[in-house]
Amino acid sequence: MIWQEYSVGLLVVLACGIVAFVALLLEWDDLHRLLLIDLVEIPSLGVIALLGTDLAEALILPGLVVGIAELLALSQIYLHKEGIADRKVSGLNIEVISKADAPVIISVILIVYGIVLSGFTGGGIAGLGIVFFFMARGAKEHFSLLEMASGVSWALWIAAFFVFMVLPQYWFLALMGAAIGILLKVTVKMALVGMMWGRPDE
């Protein structure tokens, strides 16, 4: 049988996978294990990418998100299991940042640009703006409000899915619903990650 490009690529990715798994086998420190698993995720995305079609790109996104989501939950469990969750972490204690108007302006620019971009990337950029603002000001009081926004965006996305499936003639409405849903979702989730520093009630 001829060795096609696909098989050569698969050989490389599987070799990377074996190296990563052996590293995981030999590592005993919990934090290092968590970091190594992030590395192990890459070969699985590589195998999907070898498909080389538009479908592959669409499958990588869920694969990536699953890895990030579980990593986030596990790192919170790690903090609690090690008993270091109550360490005080303040924002950026730089006088220029916490007093001047510059962080507000930069955050607003990032958020507006993110909304213009929309979709996954836009959500990332807008979320970065919010994270930067919270880091500069150390504000934490709107945690539950952001959680609610996250739930709403999830519901919006599910609603868009059912419009696509049941009423396909309204595809434009569904597309906009899904696009706004993903923008909100990524923004809010990034903001929540940015807020999860130290204790909530300070």
Binding site: G17, E41, S44, L59, V66, G67, E70
Partner: peptide, 9 residues
């Protein structure tokens, strides 16, 4: 988390 690797692959 590790098990997602063989699943997706």
């Amino acid at each position: 988390l590790t098990a997602t690797v063989p699943l997706f692959a």
